[in-house]
Design a protein around this nucleic acid. Sequence first.
RNA 1: GUGACUGUAGCUCAAUUGGUUAGAGCACCGGACUGUGGCUCCGGGGGUUGCGGGUUCAAGUCCCGUCAGUCACCCCA
Length: 458
Amino acid sequence: MSAGALPGFRDFYPKELAEREYVFRAWHAVARRFGFEQYDGPPLEALELYTRKSGEEIVTQLYNFTDKGGREVALRPEMTPTFARMVSARANALRKPVRWYSLPQLFRYERQQKGRLREHFQLNVDIVGESELSADAELLAVALEVMRECGLSVDDVVARVSDRRLLSSLLAAWGVPDDAVPAAYAAIDKVDRDPRPVLVERMRQAGIAEGTASAILEAVVRSDIAELRAAHHVIPAVAEGLDRIEAYLALMDAHGLRDWVQFDLSIVRGLAYYTGIVFELFDRKGEFRAICGGGRYDNLLRDLGDTDLPALGFGMGDVVLGELLRARGLMPSEQRGTDFFIAAEDPVKDVDVVRLATELRGLGASVEYAFRRGSLSKQRKAAWSAAASYIVEVRPTPDGQRIVVRDGAGAGFVSAVSNERTLGDVLGDTLLEPGDLMKVIRAHPRAVRPDFTVRTEA
RNA sequence: GUGACUGUAGCUCAAUUGGUUAGAGCACCGGACUGUGGCUCCGGGGGUUGCGGGUUCAAGUCCCGUCAGUCACCCCA
């Protein structure tokens, strides 16, 4: 077996590229519908851009090397640092709020597994310079509308949302000491995966009373706003956090997406820089990794540089989304073929075929024909194989040539055209809508031989 | 980085449990036939059985290593 792509990297054959483009089109369409502008940055950045906030251990997960100029560089593992750098550089000049999106290819040196390669494309959508809750709702709406654009329904996908501020105020209300908060976050993050006693034990070792730990995990699993309000309403920070979540859910309702959203305190997000509402999208069956994750990171720009602007954003990878679409039968499998495939029978000359092809191409149609002409049936097979919408057969007659248009799907003859009119004459400028071909042919009855009836068969 | 499982044609799988020259379907290429059509028939190219070593008269099959894939952990995009 010959060597394939490097581990964790993908070859995109036409079929795979068609699938990728399908997802990209959905991303572009939704981002633009919400008024986001596309940007991009370099795939290679200074290593320091990533180590500054994350520390040196991140280097083990990066594709990094020393370039010929002695610079320490890395392939970008995420887009946010690049985004932050670009925004910071022109922070004063940019119209606020900044609403940008990007489709970067990201790289990470890690052992691959399901839904996780060493390279992927990710839709990044970010808003900078807006602290209003409506921006948080708009951001999640973009992510969910992508799901809808791809044909997924509320039965397929759920958005789980939480709020870092609310969770930390709840932990304070439960009496969790400050130095035990990270351990509590870690346990809460794993509440769906690890056995409850194990998590309680970990929290106990971090200095949280066993009874409190159990109560916290139970409350997190329930994530019942009314219950939380009843239990902790006297604490202003908690009441404020609950108000905010309810207002957020009301906004999602206004977006027509309330059914997709579920309040879930167990959504913590690994990244430390989130400061407010955070969310993750999952398939409801729980077969795949998170489809998308994001939230508010109001302090990141300040911490990364000298710009202090509130910000929020999400990343959505093409790998998990692609797996989900394929599993649900929502990934278009047929590649779009050419509009016309010209098949010619001897002794029709090659130059006549090329002239016809050129004429059709001039009208904006995509056209293919056999370079090495075989039998008519062979050319027809080639046309079917090319998934052509229509097969144009050029056949010799005693007094010239006759053109027969055949439905590429095998539905039957569509039209026969005598040599006194060119196919372009008949089809005219409606070629851009091949589906209307039959209409055009009916409008030109002289071009249709009486004994050829248009047929459609099952 | 750690662990488990799996590697035979582009794809899906065979190969009488260690026994001749590793086969089939699909796909691809060529030919025949039919100018109401994706059929049918004939033929062809494709494999160092992931790679390397070992045991044996004999290895696709057993053992070791390595690489790759899958999954989990770690971590997160």
